[in-house]
Amino acid sequence: MIWILDITLLLFLVVCAIAAISIKDLLSAVIILSAYSLIMAIVWVEMQSVDVGFTEAAVGAGITTVLFIATLARTEGRSED
Protein backbone atom coordinates (compact mmCIF):
# COMPACT_ATOMS: atom_id res chain seq x y z
CA MET A 1 0.00 0.00 0.00
CA ILE A 2 1.40 3.33 -1.09
CA TRP A 3 -0.62 5.78 0.91
CA ILE A 4 0.31 8.88 -1.11
CA LEU A 5 -0.96 7.16 -4.25
CA ASP A 6 -4.15 6.18 -2.45
CA ILE A 7 -4.81 9.71 -1.20
CA THR A 8 -4.13 11.17 -4.64
CA LEU A 9 -6.44 8.70 -6.38
CA LEU A 10 -9.25 9.27 -3.89
CA LEU A 11 -8.82 13.03 -4.26
CA PHE A 12 -9.13 12.70 -8.04
CA LEU A 13 -12.17 10.50 -7.48
CA VAL A 14 -13.94 13.12 -5.38
CA VAL A 15 -13.06 15.88 -7.84
CA CYS A 16 -14.39 13.81 -10.77
CA ALA A 17 -17.60 12.95 -8.92
CA ILE A 18 -18.34 16.57 -8.02
CA ALA A 19 -17.50 17.73 -11.54
CA ALA A 20 -19.70 15.08 -13.14
CA ILE A 21 -22.80 16.11 -11.25
CA SER A 22 -22.25 19.87 -11.40
CA ILE A 23 -21.36 20.37 -15.06
CA LYS A 24 -24.10 21.48 -17.45
CA ASP A 25 -22.86 19.98 -20.73
CA LEU A 26 -23.94 16.34 -20.64
CA LEU A 27 -21.25 15.09 -23.04
CA SER A 28 -18.59 16.50 -20.73
CA ALA A 29 -20.36 14.89 -17.78
CA VAL A 30 -20.25 11.50 -19.52
CA ILE A 31 -16.54 11.83 -20.28
CA ILE A 32 -15.83 12.85 -16.67
CA LEU A 33 -17.86 9.87 -15.47
CA SER A 34 -15.70 7.65 -17.67
CA ALA A 35 -12.58 9.14 -16.06
CA TYR A 36 -14.19 8.51 -12.66
CA SER A 37 -14.70 4.87 -13.60
CA LEU A 38 -11.09 4.51 -14.73
CA ILE A 39 -9.77 5.96 -11.47
CA MET A 40 -12.17 3.74 -9.55
CA ALA A 41 -10.78 0.72 -11.41
CA ILE A 42 -7.24 1.72 -10.39
CA VAL A 43 -8.42 2.08 -6.80
CA TRP A 44 -9.97 -1.39 -6.88
CA VAL A 45 -6.73 -2.91 -8.21
CA GLU A 46 -4.78 -0.98 -5.58
CA MET A 47 -7.04 -2.56 -2.95
CA GLN A 48 -6.02 -6.06 -4.23
CA SER A 49 -9.40 -6.66 -5.85
CA VAL A 50 -8.37 -7.27 -9.45
CA ASP A 51 -11.60 -8.94 -10.50
CA VAL A 52 -13.79 -6.01 -9.49
CA GLY A 53 -11.33 -3.58 -11.05
CA PHE A 54 -11.48 -5.53 -14.28
CA THR A 55 -15.27 -5.33 -14.33
CA GLU A 56 -15.20 -1.64 -13.50
CA ALA A 57 -12.79 -0.93 -16.36
CA ALA A 58 -14.71 -3.03 -18.89
CA VAL A 59 -18.25 -2.01 -17.97
CA GLY A 60 -17.90 1.39 -16.30
CA ALA A 61 -15.29 2.97 -18.52
CA GLY A 62 -16.13 1.03 -21.67
CA ILE A 63 -19.68 -0.01 -22.36
CA THR A 64 -21.48 2.52 -20.16
CA THR A 65 -19.69 5.43 -21.82
CA VAL A 66 -20.58 4.16 -25.27
CA LEU A 67 -24.22 3.67 -24.31
CA PHE A 68 -24.43 7.12 -22.69
CA ILE A 69 -22.91 8.82 -25.74
CA ALA A 70 -25.21 6.87 -28.06
CA THR A 71 -28.14 8.05 -25.99
CA LEU A 72 -26.88 11.63 -26.00
CA ALA A 73 -26.79 11.57 -29.79
CA ARG A 74 -30.60 11.26 -29.67
CA THR A 75 -31.10 14.17 -27.27
CA GLU A 76 -30.05 17.79 -27.24
CA GLY A 77 -27.25 17.18 -24.78
CA ARG A 78 -27.76 19.93 -22.21
CA SER A 79 -29.13 19.76 -18.70
CA GLU A 80 -31.94 22.14 -17.76
CA ASP A 81 -31.39 22.26 -14.00
Binding site: F54, T55, A58, V59, G62, I63
Partner: peptide, 9 residues
Protein backbone atom coordinates in the same frame (compact mmCIF):
# COMPACT_ATOMS: atom_id res chain seq x y z
CA UNK B 1 -19.20 -11.51 -17.69
CA UNK B 2 -16.02 -9.51 -18.25
CA UNK B 3 -15.01 -11.54 -21.29
CA UNK B 4 -18.45 -11.17 -22.79
CA UNK B 5 -18.37 -7.44 -22.24
CA UNK B 6 -14.97 -7.17 -23.92
CA UNK B 7 -16.09 -9.33 -26.85
CA UNK B 8 -19.22 -7.20 -27.22
CA UNK B 9 -17.13 -4.04 -27.02
Amino acid sequence: FQGGVIFGA
